[in-house]
Amino acid sequence: MEIRHLRLVKAIMEEGGITKATRKLHLTQSALSRQLQEAEIQLGTKIFLRINRKLIPTEAGEKLLKLADEVIEKIEQTERSIRELVKGEAGEIRISTECYTSYHWLPSIMRQFQLLYPNVKLRIVMEATHQPLQKLLSGELDIAITTDPIQDSNLRYIKLFQDEMFAIVPATHKLANKKYLTAEDFADQNLVIHSLPMETVSVHRFVLAPANVTPADITVLPLTEAAVEMVRAEMGIAVMSGWALKPYLRTEGLKKIRLGTKGLLRDNFAAVLSAKEYPGYFEHFIEFLKNEITIGDREKAAS
């Protein structure tokens, strides 16, 4: 049994006869009749019976029609998916994150995605930084990247990757030779963070607050480069993800240190609206984001 035979049975049933089915399949009546005969020979039974000048499916024909509906729908879905992958759909994805450091890796991945989907416009909404979930709920974003998911039935989260947070200190700092830092090590330090409130800062949530430790001072600097230079000038210590720190550790004068004996691991999620139906390219973008970051992490680990 071939796909053309399934299409034939489906067309005859939908059009109500051979004559109309010929127009749908772009076949002559004799060619269609031959294909129907071939199918019946292969099955060893009749597919249709002619009753009162109408073609009525036999029991075998009914089973064949059910198979045709399932198989042809699957084929058409796959063809649509491939066309979308090759040609790309047209649309826009508005995206933002909760932290400026994420913009170190996001633009390069967006550029790779647009090589595959040139008709999909990707737009970073910088003004939504630090509050992407709220902007997503208000309709100002399509995808929010966050490490701090909130419990809300209106939101759906897809895990992208896991990264590790490290403290960064000057190489001459008194903490530089420690294998790992504890909450108490921050008690007499100036902690450089990207933004307030403190409840959104990972080192506060998972290290300092549980131990009831408050740093001696706190400096807010949204730009990663400025925060790193402040640490380099011995004016404080900062905590950032390993991939964000990597370019700054290539020069001398800085050292990264783990947080706690097991390290501070952080999950990153893509958040979307749970009740909204998104075009196919949204799911493709999230999968692309997840796969490309994972592959990149493996390559970094191997290098």
Rank of each mutant, 00 (worst) to 15 (best):
M1A: 07
E2G: 10
E2Y: 10
I3S: 12
R4Q: 15
R4W: 15
K10M: 07
M13P: 02
E14H: 01
E15F: 01
G17L: 01
R23N: 09
K24P: 10
H26E: 11
T28C: 13
Q29R: 12
Q29Y: 10
A31K: 09
A31H: 12
L32D: 02
S33D: 05
Q35A: 07
E38C: 06
A39I: 09
A39Y: 08
E40C: 06
I41Q: 13
I47G: 06
I47D: 10
I47H: 07
F48D: 02
F48R: 04
R50K: 14
N52R: 09
I56E: 06
T58E: 03
T58D: 01
E59N: 14
E59L: 11
L64K: 11
V71P: 07
I75G: 11
E76C: 07
S81L: 13
S81N: 08
L85Y: 10
G88Q: 02
G88N: 04
R94I: 10
E98C: 10
H104A: 13
H104V: 13
I109D: 07
M110I: 15
R111F: 10
Q114T: 08
Y117N: 13
Y117P: 00
V120N: 01
M126D: 12
M126S: 14
T129M: 13
H130A: 14
L133P: 00
Q134N: 15
Q134D: 15
Q134F: 08
Q134E: 08
L141V: 09
A144M: 10
T146C: 07
D148R: 12
P149K: 08
Q151T: 10
Q151K: 08
R156W: 13
R156T: 14
R156E: 14
Q162R: 13
D163A: 04
F166W: 11
I168F: 06
I168C: 11
T172H: 09
L175D: 03
A176L: 03
K179M: 00
Y180W: 10
T182S: 04
E184D: 08
E184P: 00
D188K: 11
N190G: 01
S195R: 12
P197W: 05
T200N: 15
V201S: 05
V201H: 05
V203T: 15
R205Y: 14
L208I: 02
P215G: 05
P215D: 04
A216W: 03
I218Q: 08
V220E: 15
P222F: 14
P222D: 10
A227P: 00
A227N: 09
V228R: 03
M230P: 03
M230V: 08
V231P: 01
R232G: 03
E234I: 04
A238S: 15
V239L: 06
M240N: 09
M240S: 09
G242Q: 02
K246Y: 12
P247Y: 03
Y248I: 00
Y248A: 03
R250T: 14
L254S: 02
K255N: 01
I257Y: 01
T261K: 10
L264K: 00
N268R: 13
N268L: 15
A270F: 05
A271L: 08
V272K: 03
E277V: 06
Y278K: 04
Y281D: 00
F282A: 04
F285T: 05
L289R: 04
K290T: 06
I295Q: 11
G296A: 03
G296E: 02
G296T: 03
A301I: 01
